[in-house]
Design a protein around this nucleic acid. Structure first.
Length: 392
DNA sequence: GCGGATCAC
DNA sequence: TATGGTGATCCGC
């Protein structure tokens, strides 16, 4: 009996073994994330804002803040009036979504060159599978990987600002976002934006152009370079064998940085080891708290407690946890399916009068009707629901 | 199958 | 003065 127990793997470890067996390290997934996107666009287009703490949103809710404001603790999803208490000089800019959409389109045009099936998660975030691009790129001639450099407005860069003064003398970034807390990332090897004068033996540099290599890292540097040249905005990126890791990576050297987890098991495990589970997309506040109550903070602890978790949680949940603890994730980008639902909602202060409730509902219904018609859908159902709700 | 809870952005 | 809106998924009932 004892021997059987010792030899026979339980169902949790059996599944872990299966997962390990089918670990796929053959894809190169990239996660691109624009830095402080809305705030960066506003700063780019309004020089008045460039050396000030700003946030985009309203007194009720902020979408994002620039890095200056973040130093005061001003964060996305924070009410504006709270942010104002943390940072009285904070400038709150109302959002210009049409403009952000237009910039986003410009970025997407670049991304499509590397993966026509890239997956946009929002206006400022996307996943790419560059596996195929990398293969093709290996025998590309240099001139297909060569880009000319547009330098920033010298008047702007000469403007004495606290942040800028801390940068290297030969800093030539055209972006308003390179702050002192910007990671050194690209500055080491041939970042075109650094205009490194030591590279004068390189004819490419003299001609104000840059050639990117054929590795994944080089591809992503090229993508970020092109984004900055085209939009004057910076992006951060993560490179990894799956989406879960790529997403975590893109956060690591933010802003204006990138990070790669190499496609071998040891590199993945080293990266995962002390990673707080909260960093993983899909693990939110509530799950974090539940797992914390079990003494689980890091991915290593998540793996160590796999047996307990399989008893406490649903099958889909502990399977998900086991995936994370082994550093596994999607290796292909699921095509964006059709929309499954459409809704409108509003937060309001207490309403006791029936008539006001009715009017609000009427308003929501008519908004939803418009949205539905935009996509050419039937406006039949909810009228029935609406009338039914009010016993009409 | 529905509604609440959770999550991402 | 003041803490959002949209879409998706999972789970318990």
């Amino acid at each position: 009996m004892l021997r059987r127990k010792a030899m026979k793997k339980n169902f949790v470890d059996r599944y872990a073994m299966e997962l390990e067996q089918s670990r796929d390290l053959n894809n190169t997934i990239v996660h691109i994330d624009m830095d402080a996107f809305y705030a960066a666009v506003e700063m780019r287009d309004n020089p008045e804002l460039k050396d000030k703490p700003i946030a985009v949103g309203s007194m009720s809710m902020l979408s994002t803040s620039n890095y200056y404001a973040r130093r005061f603790g001003v964060r996305a999803a924070m009410p504006g009036f709270i942010a104002k208490r943390l940072c009285p000089q904070l400038i709150i800019v109302p959002p210009n979504f049409d403009k952000y959409r237009a910039v986003s389109t410009e970025v997407k045009e670049i991304l499509a060159d590397y993966d026509p099936n890239f997956l946009a998660m929002s206006l400022d975030e996307a996943y790419l599978n560059i596996t195929k691009h990398l293969q093709e790129r290996q025998n590309w001639p240099e001139d297909k990987r060569k880009y000319f450099i547009k330098t920033g407005n010298p008047l702007e860069n000469d403007k004495p600002r606290k942040e800028v003064n801390k940068l290297r003398e030969h800093e030539r970034s055209i972006s308003p976002l390179l702050f002192d807390d910007s990671p050194p990332d690209l500055q080491s090897q041939g970042n075109p934006l650094q205009g490194n004068s030591e590279e004068e033996d390189n004819p490419q540099t003299l001609q104000n152009s840059i050639v990117f290599g054929t590795s994944a890292e080089e591809v992503v540097k090229e993508i970020r370079f092109r984004i900055e040249q085209k939009t004057t905005l910076t992006a951060s990126a993560g490179i990894a064998p799956n989406t879960m890791l790529a997403k975590v990576c893109s956060d690591k050297n933010k802003p204006n940085g990138q990070y790669q987890v190499l496609p071998n098991r040891q590199a993945v495990m080293d990266f995962i080891k002390d990673l707080p589970i909260r960093k993983v997309s899909g693990i939110g506040k509530v799950t974090e708290k539940m797992l914390k109550a079990l003494g689980i903070i890091t991915c290593t602890e998540l793996y160590q407690q796999r047996a307990l978790l399989s008893l406490l949680f649903s099958e889909t949940s502990w399977h998900h946890f086991l995936h994370i603890s082994l550093g596994l994730g999607s290796t292909h980008l699921a095509r964006d399916g059709e929309r499954k639902s459409m809704s409108v909602e509003r937060t309001f202060s207490e309403i006791s009068k029936a008539e006001e409730q009715y009017n609000l509902c009427q308003e929501l219904c008519s908004e939803l009707a418009q949205d539905l018609q935009k996509e050419g859908l039937k406006v039949l159902y909810f009228n029935v629901v609406f009338l039914d709700f009010f016993n009409f």
